[in-house]
Design a binder for these strands. Structure first.
Lengths: 231, 231
DNA sequence: AATATAATCGTTATTACAACGTTAATTAAA
DNA sequence: TTTAATTAACGTTGTAATAACGATTATATT
């Protein structure tokens, strides 16, 4: 069958905004760009969409390349296609954001890409329109996290309530009343208390919790409101 | 400067999911596909992204071509890129949804494309993955309309409260308590009552209202909740 | 005058929740 | 052993939102 005539093809790339949380700080994984132009500048991890790949597949592959991780929370954010966004060649980029458990991340791999985790407030200037992508991803995460329990994707299997609260506080850049937070979280029924404690941050130690994955899945679509509006 | 080597270009299209509301029914504007394959099948209005166009620009152009309308509410929905989604040639489609005032729509233009408005519940089978796009658009509109006053984009300058309510009822496919609805809507302060009435649907007639565009803009980002949960 | 639709007013019970107070438990350090 | 720091839990109060009703009034056409 004939192909569409007179249509100029365009390159299609995928860029990943990768969030991680180490229990203290919300971070972004960036790589040093290996090719010209903008060589050695900080950039999102990206790549071109392969021949037999769909967009989600490309994003998964790129994420796997950089982090060694399968089964990561990944969501399409937005497609960016200004004609001049890449000075070399017309490229449309479909941006995805990923939420990963930073502990599962295999550090060896990143040497190849000169990858580094940056605290959100210390992100350097990025190439092309990647700054815009990061901002959009943050906005979307705030929007999503206000209604759905997505932030658990950033946590390790076992985590403490203080860690969880600190995560919410960083996403919304505002303090949360601890007493109301505990109430809301326990009322959601999403957490299963463990017997062990994390004693690295206090004398008393904070109990570990696990996510009840059944309930998490079941409640994901129901409009929760896990945020608080404290000063 | 050298181009990226070994990267296969892909065609980039934009497809528009165009919603309209005639005061009675929420509708979708579809066109009869003019070219093979799937010639004469119903389809979303789409087109390829031009050389000097960004994605939003392409969507605007395509919308203008079909409807004759500028300044339409338009939002990027999702990018679709399965390798086999278009049997002719690998094409990534960026879907946009549009909310238009159906009265402003110029009927002459659509003859060229054999366009037709379909009630939401009477949409025919569409080509390629366009069904999926329509479903995603409906989901997104429900999501958005629950928090932001976007449905006003579908209404003419002057509209009645019964029309507005019927619109919400169709979007959520469930009846709304009229007394609570009026209270909520008037409390929002978004409506300005006119002196005229629409007498086409009742003896008494229903007052026309206009949208307070200042307040609409101001309140758009604040998380409203304009929906009701009546049976 | 009858009638159908539009619009207003009112009530009640429930839920969500922010803001703040208080206390018990735990354990490292003094 | 006592002290201090921290986590975790329970309680209170006031307010706002709102769903689910009931009842009534208004209006203009037939």
């Amino acid at each position: 069958m004939a192909k569409y005539s007179n249509v100029k093809p365009i390159l299609i790339a995928v860029d990943c905004i990768i969030f991680g949380y180490d229990g203290e700080h919300l971070k972004l994984l960036l790589v040093k760009r290996a090719i010209e132009p903008e060589k050695d500048k900080w950039s999102l991890m990206g790549g071109f969409v392969g021949d037999d790949e769909n967009l989600d597949g490309a994003a998964k592959r790129i994420l796997l390349e950089l982090t060694g991780l399968h089964d990561v929370y990944l969501e399409q954010l937005h497609a960016y296609g200004n004609p001049d966004r890449d000075p070399i060649e017309r490229t449309v980029s479909v941006a995805y954001f990923a939420l990963i458990d930073i502990n599962k991340y295999s550090k060896q791999i990143n040497d190849q890409y000169h990858a580094e985790w940056f605290k959100l407030k210390e992100i350097p200037k990025l190439i092309f329109d990647h700054d815009k992508m990061v901002k959009a991803a943050m906005d979307k995460i705030r929007y999503q996290a206000a209604l759905h329990p997505i932030l658990f994707e950033l946590l390790p299997k076992k985590f403490t309530i203080p860690q969880l609260q600190a995560l919410y506080e960083q996403v919304y850049d505002s303090p949360i009343d601890n007493r109301n937070f505990i109430r809301k979280i326990t009322a959601s029924g999403l957490l299963i208390k463990q017997t062990e404690k994390d004693k690295s941050n206090s004398r008393r130690g904070a109990f570990y919790f696990k996510l009840d994955k059944q309930k998490h899945k079941a409640q994901f679509q129901s409009f929760l409101n896990l945020t608080a509006k404290s000063k």
